[in-house]
């Protein structure tokens, strides 16, 4: 929606826009902001600028593109039956948006609009009826996936909420935020059950283990912490400085034995859990690895980065077995 502006400004805008395109260094490499594997192991979804790329998980051949997102796609979540994909983003400082896609037909089945800022995490509930979103606007929201209507808002965090995870039974939702806390919510009532306050700086990523009994969280204080999730509280099991700079993403292996972390210190580290014993450091990452996801068979994990590079590491030896350059259809 354009607001009328003085002639001088319009001329200046045109002039500067033109000069920007003259000076631009060429179309930027398509950056990777998020990744997700479909639970059936067939599809790898890559969240990019304004679109989602779908690749065959095994061959890495392109399967299709999901276009039309308003800006960067910052979070992806498949429904448990692998039939639907939620792709979340929005416009920074303005609004949040989620498009729910039908994976088979590549058609959009619903759009969710809300939040006052871009959405950083989206998660399908295990039963597929609800999606949870969290945003820079400090709120967590629950939405009906059929109608796209908001069910409720969970208001308690006092800073951007970057990460969400349902427990495998779908009864509880966990959120990790820049306010240094992880909160545990009852999905049916929206009640905040308890807060984990041990982190000493903002949280970027949380991961619930496959059994739903533990949660790991990490962020700006460079440490990984693991708690045992109980009925009314959580018990801190491990706390360890793991990296030399902020930790960006955590991923829990499907067999629950391994935790992988990526960091702004340009490394990816592999730990055996729950003792958090370091198994491997994969150094010399070309850029910040925002996205880290295990393939459902647990044999590999994918790392997607700010500079558009994608690596697939196998868990025996941690070699990068793929040289993948994603293409843009724009």
């Amino acid at each position: 929606m354009r607001v009328a502006m003085p002639f001088v400004q319009r001329v200046a805008q045109v002039f500067f826009a033109a000069s920007l395109s003259l000076l631009a260094a060429g179309p930027p490499k398509p950056q990777i902001f998020s990744l997700a594997y479909s639970p059936d192991g067939k599809v790898l979804a890559i969240g990019q600028y304004k679109e989602v790329q779908l690749l065959d998980a095994r061959t890495r051949k392109p399967l299709g593109t999901l276009p039309g997102h308003v800006e960067v796609v910052r979070s992806l979540s498949f429904s448990k039956d692998s039939k639907r994909l939620a792709a979340a983003g929005g416009v920074a400082g303005v609004k949040g948006e989620v498009k729910i896609w039908d994976v088979a037909t590549l058609a959009q089945s619903a759009t969710v609009s809300g939040h006052y800022d871009t959405i950083y995490a989206v998660a399908f509930s295990p039963d597929g009826n609800t999606i949870a979103t969290s945003s820079y606007d400090k709120f967590v929201k629950l939405w009906d996936t059929q109608t796209g209507k908001e069910i409720r808002t969970l208001k308690d965090h006092i800073d951007a909420v970057y990460s969400l995870s349902f427990t495998p039974d779908g009864k509880r939702l966990l959120s990790g935020a820049a306010d240094r806390t992880i909160k545990v919510w009852d999905t049916a009532t929206g009640e905040r059950l308890f807060t984990l306050g041990e982190p000493t700086d903002g949280i970027n990523s949380i991961a619930v283990d496959p059994t739903g009994k533990m949660v790991a969280a990490a962020g700006l204080d460079k440490s990984i912490r693991i708690w045992a999730l109980e009925a009314k509280s959580a018990r801190l099991l491990q706390s360890q400085i793991a990296h030399e700079d902020a930790i960006l993403k955590l991923a829990w292996s499907p067999d629950g034995a391994t935790l992988v972390s990526s960091s702004a210190d340009r490394t990816i580290k592999v730990f055996s859990v729950p003792q958090l014993t370091e198994v491997k450091t994969i150094a010399h990452q070309p850029d910040w690895t925002y996205a880290l996801e295990f393939a459902p068979d647990g044999k590999t994990f994918a790392a997607g980065r700010y500079d558009g590079s994608l690596s697939i590491y196998d868990v025996n030896g941690f070699r990068d077995i793929a040289e993948v350059r994603t293409a843009s259809t724009r």
């Binding site: 500067f16 826009a17 920007l20 631009a24 179309p27 930027p28 950056q31 902001f33 600028y49 304004k50 800006e71 960067v72 910052r74 920074a92 400082g93 871009t118 950083y120 820079y136 951007a160 970057y162 902020a246 702004a264 850029d287 910040w288 925002y290 700010y306």
Partner: peptide
């Protein structure tokens, strides 16, 4: 450039950078 999953700078559309 990179913090908060790159919300502040839009490489593809510079004028729309936050």
């Amino acid at each position: 450039t990179r913090q908060s999953v790159g919300r502040r700078i839009n490489l593809a559309d510079p004028a729309n950078s936050l």
